[in-house]
């Protein structure tokens, strides 16, 4: 359990993080989203003590970070793995040596280090590349090495700092899949900093949006993303959808219940109201459920009635001339 309470951090008297409150239960994947420079990476680095903070507290499994001295802090960091946007591998060490490095810091014996590193590299799919140098690997492979390295000290928490931002979409997916698998296998708590919404959607359970050092939205990923709260719109980019001439729009919030898509079909048949689907963006979320928005066009005088019929089916519907996508 990671518990951040009233955390504030200042640089030169200017607050870069203010009144941050977050609780992350064990085994969850938590996304910290926001544009660059809003303090999300700083917050991540506070969690493993790489950055200090001015007030408030961070508690991890009953360990209060501010109470640790330097040696205790080093010891504490063993239980937290970390991966980075640019991988941060040592260029002059082989893949195997890179994975062994954290264990070397803790003076594990050589045979154990090698065995463990080989097993981890096998796990991330790089069993064939033990003696390759990082410069011979692709971006995705480098991040796999970094993940193996981050797991070498058997952490309970994995911190990911824009871990997929330097990778192309297909590779990003495979890395996210790996992280999600590891999260399940090891019951690892994962905290991901990212500016990519697709990352949040595909792996995170919960999320927070940070804007200028403040948390402006927090909760389950679907709750945050399906609300069209301003912070979400800002982050995704404001796009509007406008009703065609002579029509009204109805916005439906589809929330993964199986009967939802069917309800649309059923109402098309039975409501006696003609409507068209002009836009739908429904995606699978990390929970496996399909969620998103659907926009219908309908005659203005029938909009109210149709919206009410959807609401009767338990689908959140609203009518209007213009919506944010």
């Amino acid at each position: 359990m990671i518990e951040i309470k009233d955390l504030t951090k200042k640089y030169d008297n200017k607050a870069v993080l203010e009144n941050i409150n977050i609780k992350i239960p064990d085994g969850r994947i938590y996304g910290l989203a926001g544009q660059s420079g809003v303090g999300k990476s700083t917050l991540l680095r506070c969690i493993n003590g790489l950055e200090s903070f001015d007030s408030g507290s961070i508690c991890i499994d009953a360990t209060e970070l501010n109470s640790l001295n330097e040696a205790e802090m080093r010891e504490f960091r063993r239980s937290i793995g970390m991966i980075f946007q640019n991988f941060a591998l040592l260029e002059r060490k082989s893949v195997l040596e890179n994975v062994m490095l954290p264990m070397e810091f803790w003076k594990y014996d050589r045979a154990h280090m090698e065995k463990k590193a080989k097993a981890l590299l096998e796990r991330v799919g790089l069993g064939e590349k033990l003696n390759s140098m990082p410069s011979e690997l692709s971006g995705g492979q480098k991040q796999r090495v970094a993940i193996a390295r981050a797991l070498s000290l058997d952490p309970k928490i994995l911190l990911c700092d824009e871990a997929t931002s330097a990778l192309d979409p297909a590779i990003t997916l495979s890395i996210l899949e790996l992280i999600a698998d590891i999260n399940k296998e090891l019951n690892l708590t994962v905290v991901m900093v990212t500016h990519e919404m697709s990352v949040i959607k595909s792996v995170c359970d919960d999320m927070a949006i940070i804007e200028a050092g403040h948390i402006v939205a927090e909760g389950k990923v679907e709750d945050v993303l399906l609300s069209d709260a301003e912070p979400v719109r800002k982050l995704i980019g404001e796009r509007k959808i406008t009703a065609p001439v002579g029509k009204d729009l109805i916005k439906l919030v589809i929330r993964g219940k199986e009967e939802h898509p069917e309800a649309v079909c059923e109402l098309a048949r039975n409501s006696g109201i003609a409507f068209g689907i002009i836009s739908a963006e429904i995606e699978p979320f990390h929970s496996g459920e399909y969620m998103g928005h659907m926009y219908l066009t309908v005659d203005p005088e029938k909009a109210e009635t149709l919206a009410r019929k959807f609401i009767e089916y338990g689908i959140d519907a609203s009518s209007g001339k213009e919506f944010y996508l």
């Binding site: 790489l50 000290l153 911190l159």
Partner: peptide, 20 residues
Amino acid sequence: NIVMAARAFGASDMQIMFKV
């Protein structure tokens, strides 16, 4: 970032100096 990674794994300053 390499220095930060080493520190994140609990390396001491001297270990960062000589091993990284």
